[in-house]
C-alpha cells in the first residue's frame, strides 16, 4: 500500500530496504538483462543519440515563424520569462497567471501555439503523439526544451494555491480504481520491487523511486522509435487501465504529472532519457 502519509524518514528507510531486497531476488536477473540491453543500445548510439533528431527538430520548431500569425514560439513564456528555455523544465508544472491554471510543459506549449501562433487547439490535440511518419511537434519541442535543463535539479514550485491543489488532486487520482479491470495507478505503482511480466514497476509514491525515473522524461522509447513525453505516458497507462482516452493537457493529466514530478523533486534532470 502507498505510504504517502508515513513520516518521510521511514519512507526513505523502507525504500532502501525494498531496493536492497529487490536486487537480491531472482527478479533482478531479467531486469538486469533489460538494463544491459538498454545500456548496449546507449553505447551503440553514443555518438548520435536518436533523441538528437527530435531535439534538432524541436529547436527549429521553436524558432520558426508558424501558424496564421506567422510568429515563432520565441516569445512563449515557459515560466522563466518570455523566450527563456534554460531551466524551464526544472520549474514545471506551475501556475500561469495568463491562463489561470497549472500547466506542465506540453500543456504550456499547446497554450503558446494557440495564443501566440493562432493555431487551432482542436487540430493540435489530434496529433499530440508521434507515430512514424506522423510526427508530433510536442515531442520534438519537449525534447529540445528538456535538454536545456540537463544537469539541473527538479524543483517544481508549490507556492500558489492552485499548484498545491493540483498536487492534491493528483494524489487523489493516483488511487482511483475504475474500468473493467478495477485498476488504479496504485495497482501497478504503489509497491516496490514488483513487475508486470518482466517490466519493472517503479513505486511512484515513494520519492526515491520517483526521482530515479522521472528526471529522464521526456524519453526516447526504443521499442517504438519515438520520443515520448509524460503526457503520452499518462495517456498510455490509462489505456492499460482500460479507461477511456485521456485528453491531452486535461486537468487530470496535469494533476497527475504535478503529483509525480513533485514526488520526484530533487531529481537530477537527465532528459531526454532512454526507455525500453
Amino acid at each position: 500500500m502507498p505510504d504517502s502519509r508515513r513520516p518521510v524518514w521511514w519512507a526513505a528507510l523502507g525504500g532502501l530496504l525494498a531496493l536492497a531486497l529487490g536486487t537480491a531476488s531472482v527478479v533482478a536477473q531479467s531486469a538486469q538483462e533489460t538494463a544491459r540491453e538498454i545500456e548496449r543500445y546507449r553505447e551503440a548510439v553514443a555518438d548520435s543519440s536518436p533523441g538528437e533528431l527530435w531535439e534538432a527538430r524541436g529547436e527549429d520548431l521553436w524558432k520558426m515563424p508558424r501558424g496564421p500569425r506567422n510568429v515563432s514560439l520565441e516569445r512563449c513564456d515557459l515560466g522563466q520569462g518570455p523566450g527563456v528555455v534554460a531551466g524551464a523544465l526544472a520549474r514545471l508544472p506551475r501556475w500561469f497567471a495568463d491562463a489561470d491554471r497549472v500547466m506542465d510543459l506540453e500543456t504550456r506549449l499547446l497554450h503558446c501555439m494557440v495564443t501566440l501562433q493562432g493555431l487551432d487547439p482542436a487540430v493540435l490535440r489530434r496529433q499530440p503523439f508521434g507515430n512514424g511518419e506522423q510526427r508530433s511537434d510536442f515531442e520534438a519541442l519537449s525534447a529540445w526544451i528538456a535538454a536545456q535543463s540537463r544537469g539541473m535539479t527538479l524543483a517544481p514550485p508549490l507556492d500558489h494555491p492552485a499548484e498545491r491543489a493540483a498536487w492534491r488532486l493528483g494524489r487523489e487520482l493516483f488511487f482511483v480504481r475504475g474500468g473493467t479491470h478495477d485498476f488504479a495507478c496504485t495497482t501497478c505503482h504503489a509497491q516496490s520491487g514488483r513487475r508486470i511480466r518482466l517490466q519493472e514497476l517503479p513505486n511512484l509514491s515513494r520519492p526515491e523511486e520517483a526521482r530515479r525515473v522521472l528526471g529522464t522524461w521526456p524519453a526516447y522509447r526504443v521499442s517504438q522509435g519515438e520520443m515520448r513525453t509524460l503526457q503520452w505516458r499518462m495517456n498510455d497507462c490509462f489505456r492499460q487501465q482500460r479507461f477511456p482516452d485521456l485528453v491531452f493537457g486535461s486537468e487530470v493529466s496535469v494533476a497527475l504529472v504535478s503529483y509525480l514530478l513533485h514526488n520526484a523533486s530533487g531529481a537530477a534532470l537527465a532528459a531526454p532519457g532512454v526507455r525500453r
Binding site: S4, V8, A11, G266
Partner: peptide
C-alpha cells in the same frame, strides 16, 4: 533533507 521532499505530507483537504 530537501531531497526527501515536502509534499508527501500535505494533508488532504
Amino acid at each position: 533533507a530537501c531531497v526527501v521532499g515536502p509534499p508527501q505530507t500535505m494533508p488532504r483537504e
